[in-house]
Design a protein around this nucleic acid. Sequence first.
DNA 1: CTAAATGCAAATTGTTTGCAGAAAC
DNA 2: GTTTCTGCAAACAATTTGCATTTAG
Lengths: 151, 151
Amino acid sequence: MREFLKTKGFKMTPQRELIFRSFFELTDHVSVDELYIKVRKKDSSIGYSTVWRNLKLICKVGLAEEVNVGDGITRYDHITKVPHGHLFCINCKKLIEFNVEQIIAILAQTASDKNFAPESFKIEIQGYCEECSKDNKSDSNGFSQKQQKLN
Amino acid sequence: MREFLKTKGFKMTPQRELIFRSFFELTDHVSVDELYIKVRKKDSSIGYSTVWRNLKLICKVGLAEEVNVGDGITRYDHITKVPHGHLFCINCKKLIEFNVEQIIAILAQTASDKNFAPESFKIEIQGYCEECSKDNKSDSNGFSQKQQKLN
DNA sequence: CTAAATGCAAATTGTTTGCAGAAAC
DNA sequence: GTTTCTGCAAACAATTTGCATTTAG
């Protein structure tokens, strides 16, 4: 890792190492806050912006990407070999991945039909996960939490 | 429209009428700011929050929905009969729609496989539109504007 | 040494709310 | 009249930056 970063002109520091480790240990999609809290448990002197900047750096060197589901919080997703979509649970905010190879093929075709040069795809299903759809009869009326209250 | 709103317990006002009209006149996806500017040209006394609240209201009564492409700006999309995806141009920020019926079918299947109760789908391709991909050789290096500069 | 990284505090940006007065019905 | 709406200013929340200082290479 240290070598890898060096080739890109970045240095390794204890804080960076801890942040990177913590991020790669996780399998799910963290927000800056979540990672900050996790990292703080190991070293409480680390600043928020250091975590933020390192998460950006991880994206910059191509090891993660930002995911934005529209709830105002940016999460960071490991870049895996396989492209995937997200099931986002409106209730518990969990992100579940699923395979999209078939869909990507269709999208690539669509883009080319429209002379659009694609850089990335985003495929997402919002709804209620298995657990949440059980005890959520009343809430699932078609409006998202956010749209729900209108002052 | 006035009648329609009345049935839902909302009143019609001159400001609301202007905002609604301005929104429905447009075919593309506006942000609050954009609509605010447009509306201001007709009536410069209208406040930002009035525009914001009315846009939310339009969503609430089911005539539009929020679209979030991850650049930090919420845009509002007319709800049309046909479900559609978005081509988002990273350069000029334009949103172009495309048909996704085929894909929705696959997604519905995916959700049901995972016992996930879907409420909505989001299908998006980010990249460069026809015009922007011409004069954008230098810029299109795989990083988005935002990720580009990292302090 | 020099360039990059850190931690803090403060700036920014977009969204949302509280409230007093005005307007709809 | 009562309820909703408006406009303003202020609150919020998340992201981003400036800067003095420290640290890696």
